[in-house]
């Protein structure tokens, strides 16, 4: 397992991408919004924080392309690559979560929306509840999006372009079928009200289950993937 840590260290050599880039994007978005907030009188609710989640998705999609062949070529086990990457993702998600939860607290409790009615880090619904609950939501969302990307690209690694086509077609067909059934039985209304009734925190558990599924998929894909 010692080599899993070496894989994490390998990822860390990418620190500009893993650590600084999302923060640069996040804070430039924040400061632009802050300037607008200072200049205008209306309250601003912005989804600038989404850039962090988007970053996780994209990084998840690109990690394998960047480092898998290299790691396998340099005698790392697939298992070590997987766990080393997991550690890296956990580390990035955790530290970002701490930062975001802290900023949400500062925004909501200390600065009264930065004194200019800018709602950037503390959004309704997503940031309901205390700081710990918010942290859980943020963390599970980040993890989820990373492994969504990672599992898709691991299918690509394992089965190539052909496999991706099949995956795409199957998910399209399945998606259309399900929505057709829901439409047929007029369930949309029911589902919508049910989901809304749950808090973001409660939903994060469901997302967590899905994340575990993605993680398992990518693990088994990578175990048989070739460089």
């Amino acid at each position: 397992m010692n080599h899993a840590w070496n894989v994490t260290r390998m990822h860390l050599r990418y620190n500009s991408i893993w650590l600084y880039m999302p923060l640069i994007v996040l804070f430039s978005s924040f400061f632009i919004n802050l300037i607008i907030a200072v200049l205008s009188d209306v309250p601003i609710y912005t989804g600038g924080v989404a850039s962090v989640y988007l970053f996780m998705l994209i990084t998840g999609l690109l990690t394998l392309r960047n480092t898998f062949s290299f790691a396998i070529g340099f005698s790392f086990r697939r298992k070590d690559y997987f766990f080393g990457t997991f550690l890296m993702v956990a580390f990035v998600s955790f530290s970002t979560t701490v930062l975001l939860a802290l900023l949400s607290y500062v925004e909501n409790n200390l600065t009264n929306a930065w004194g200019n009615e800018l709602y950037f880090f503390h959004l309704p619904y997503l940031n309901d509840g205390n700081v710990v609950i918010q942290a859980c939501v943020i963390f599970s969302l980040m993890f989820h999006l990373y492994y969504l990307g990672f599992s898709i690209s691991s299918v690509h690694r394992r089965f190539g372009r052909y496999g991706m086509m099949i995956l795409l077609i199957v998910s399209l067909v399945a998606g259309s079928l399900i929505s057709a059934i829901i439409t047929y039985f007029h369930w949309w209304q029911i589902i919508f009200t049910k989901v809304i009734a749950y808090s973001a925190f409660q939903l994060s558990w469901g997302i967590g289950l899905l994340t575990i599924f993605f993680i398992l998929v990518s693990y088994f894909m990578l175990r048989r993937a070739t460089s």
């Binding site: 390998m10 050599r13 500009s16 960047n66 290299f70």
Partner: peptide
């Protein structure tokens, strides 16, 4: 052999050293 895009030569050696 493929290398990570942003790796420097020294990163390659450090990774090799670790394994």
């Amino acid at each position: 052999q493929a290398y990570p895009e942003y790796f420097q030569i020294s990163d390659v050696f450090a990774t090799a050293k670790s394994i």
